[in-house]
């Protein structure tokens, strides 16, 4: 524990700026994965334990598309679209068969998919780890803001993630389809009784969830290592985020993701050996006082 260092950091503008942006970037990528997770749970009451796999596949597809086209933008797009399609197939072929089944049965099926996909990645791409490398456009020196160091690439990532989060909120809040999704989350029978095609709706939700995870994987590919099984750690953190934010609440996921990112960035200064433990403690404390997360609906 190093509380002096932590105090020193929060009172220095350069440290504050650097660590805050560092927390934001970790948080925003996490938010993109967690947003899909929480959306799927909110509408379908499905806990998608295979969500980390979406992220992994998105990164690999983006990597291959980048190698093929040389364009980072196309790579990310391919990752997002690929996972949107994968999400629909996953929902139609597997998950649709266990709607209403016990959460543990869903867990079992998702676990099987995780196992299968990890091995498929090993077969298709090999066991070596890959790194996409920074796209030439972003191979520029970092900016200095109030003494803090901020790389332009990360500013771009934060803005893109914010735009996607904002777009998602607008989609849910203003459009007709958004209203239907929210209604379905509230009362699926009612939506079905109104003659709305819930099959299509459920596939759509998985497509959006898959796309978000795939985009996050693609966006992160230049700076993170690609290995089979890389979805594992992001899955755990996404769950922490969705649970703290309240399962089903996208706004909650955003706040929780940022909080988690900040816990990590400042935790590494104050408690370098117990950062992981801090996240679990935060989760337990919040759940003790708010048994369904910060913005979750009471379960009855």
């Amino acid at each position: 524990m190093d509380l002096d260092a932590l105090l020193g950091c929060v009172t220095s503008s350069s440290c504050l700026v650097t660590q805050t942006t560092s927390g934001l970037i970790v948080g925003m990528l996490l938010f993109m994965v967690a947003a899909g997770l929480t959306l799927i749970f909110g509408v379908l009451k499905i806990v998608n334990f295979a969500h980390g796999t979406f992220y992994m596949l998105g990164a690999y597809i983006a990597y291959s598309a980048f190698m093929f086209t040389g364009s980072y933008f196309l790579g990310v797009l391919a990752g997002g679209l690929g996972m949107a399609i994968f999400g629909v197939i996953f929902e139609r072929v597997l998950i649709s068969r266990v709607y209403g089944a016990n959460v543990l049965m869903q867990l079992l099926i998702c676990y099987a998919v995780v196992l299968i996909c990890d091995d498929l990645v090993k077969i298709v791409w090999g066991p070596d780890f890959y790194a996409m490398g920074m796209p030439p456009a972003f191979q520029v020196p970092p900016l200095f803001i109030a003494g803090g160091v901020v790389p332009p690439f990360y500013i771009m990532l934060i803005l893109v993630a914010l735009a996607i989060g904002g777009g998602l909120s607008l989609l849910l809040g203003l459009t007709k389809i958004g209203k239907i999704i929210r209604a379905a989350a509230h009362n699926p029978n009612m939506v079905s009784a109104l003659g709305i095609n819930t099959t299509l709706l459920y596939s759509l939700v998985f497509a959006v969830g898959g796309m978000l995870a795939g985009l996050a994987g693609g966006l992160a590919a230049p700076v993170r290592s690609l290995t089979p099984g890389m979805g594992f750690s992001i899955l755990i953190e996404s769950f922490i985020v969705t649970v703290i934010g309240g399962m089903g609440s996208i706004g909650g996921a955003l706040i929780a993701a940022v909080v988690l990112g900040l816990i990590r960035s400042f935790g590494t200064i104050g408690f370098p050996l117990f950062t992981e433990g801090l996240m679990y403690i935060a989760m337990i404390i919040i759940l003790v006082f708010k048994p369904s997360g910060l913005f979750g609906k009471e379960i009855v």
Binding site: I236, I240, M247, E276, Y280, M283, G296
Partner: peptide, 23 residues
Amino acid sequence: LRLIYFAFVTLAMQMLMHSVIIS
């Protein structure tokens, strides 16, 4: 806690213990 929140808080407890053992 209830249902899925119970599930996740027990998981958090386990992972906290795991972190303690690792540290």
